[in-house]
């Protein structure tokens, strides 16, 4: 599983990354977490608000910082 965090590097993207890692640890799930901060890369996912959360090339959330519980739901 590959998880991508879309965002130019503001506080919210950082928090989303932290929450995602936390969720992975809690589920003891192995996955690669990548940060996508180039605008040209972010644009390919067609989101208008950052941060965005992408799991295996599918946008599951954008424009908000998901909680650890929410991310666990996405991962299931």
């Amino acid at each position: 599983m590959i998880i991508k965090i879309l965002g130019s590097g503001c506080k919210n993207c950082q928090r989303l990354e932290d929450n995602t890692k936390q969720a992975l640890t809690e589920l003891s799930c192995e996955a690669k977490v990548e940060k996508v901060s180039e605008f040209s890369e972010i644009a390919k996912f067609n989101v208008m608000k950052t941060p965005g959360l992408v799991i295996d090339d599918k946008v599951v959330s954008f424009g908000k910082v998901n909680t650890v519980d929410e991310i666990k739901e996405f991962l299931k």
Partner: peptide, 15 residues
């Protein structure tokens, strides 16, 4: 307005 979203917004509008 959040400046970190302004570019994705710009692209999204044009697209």
């Amino acid at each position: 307005f959040c400046s970190c979203s302004s570019i994705p917004l710009f692209i999204g509008f044009l697209k």
